[in-house]
Design a protein around this nucleic acid. Structure first.
Lengths: 145, 145
DNA sequence: TTTATTTAGTCAGTTTAACTGACCACAAAA
DNA sequence: TTTTGTGGTCAGTTAAACTGACTAAATAAA
């Protein structure tokens, strides 16, 4: 176990790098009221509509936190809620046209940025890394209240 | 580029998992005033002493932020400062005996936890993943003011 | 069918870990 | 010796999480 590298710190550093890039790139494109924390929403809101509770569970944050993020995006016109016809307590969340633009921009920004990483370690190794990360995540436990 | 997986979200999820485990395990062992954010300090404070500025730069946070983290640990007796004999502005940071216990515990906790991940994808693949992460980080740019 | 329990979501308040800007004392360079 | 840079602190702000208490509707149990 001696001299075991600090995997956590690495994960964190890389995530931070990606996040900072995303933030800057979104600003540049004029989406000033969007931050990387909203990423999950853009990426996972389904065309048929998604529930806040559902999004929260998937992102491993509380529904209160997700609620706050959604409220910010709604205020700025990236998403809208509609009452869920099948459950009067619930609302369904949809991306607006503006929201879909951000989603697509985000994908592109991510893709472009990762090319840099790909260049650092080679595309074969990078593909492998991504595959391993995905695999590791798929069997992940744990959520918040 | 279609259906490109969200690497950032994966990094984040994994880091969070590791972090949550570390937090819980440290609590269990009675180190209640230590959080994963202090990890960098425990891991990188050298036996010959380290500067706050130096630690901050390496961790990619501002010296003010590092200063605050260090103050918390000093208050709780995990580190102590001594004036740097070669520079009257500066202080050198050392781990106390208590601090070294946390460092060692932290290593062990990390090591134990990662065995679970290792089990998920196999030890060969896991070793590879760690190697690739390390490689990717080594050539990383960017720091804060 | 009335009662009890979950569930979707909000409101209010708190905490952690960052940040910026202004500053001081000393060090190093001009 | 004057200017500029550096180590570090102080004060204040922000983002993004958290907990706890709550309402209204849905579902399960009596």
């Amino acid at each position: 176990m001696d001299e075991y590298i600090n995997t956590g710190a690495y994960l964190r550093l890389l995530w931070d790098e990606l996040r900072a890039n995303m933030e800057a790139a979104l600003q540049e494109r004029g989406f000033e009221d969007v931050s990387p924390s909203h990423g999950w929403i853009f990426h996972h809101t389904k065309d048929e509509g998604s529930r806040i509770t559902e999004l929260a569970a998937a992102a491993h944050i509380t529904k209160q936190s997700m609620s706050a993020l959604v409220a910010q995006l709604e205020e700025a016109g990236y998403v809208r809620r509609k009452p869920d016809p099948s459950d009067k307590r619930a609302a369904l969340l949809f991306l607006t046209a503006k929201g879909k633009k951000v989603r697509d921009a985000g994908r592109q920004i991510n893709f472009d940025f990762e090319k840099k990483w790909e260049a650092r370690i080679g595309s074969a190794d990078y593909a492998l890394l991504r595959k391993l990360l995905a695999q590791l995540c798929e069997t992940t436990a744990g959520s918040r209240s």
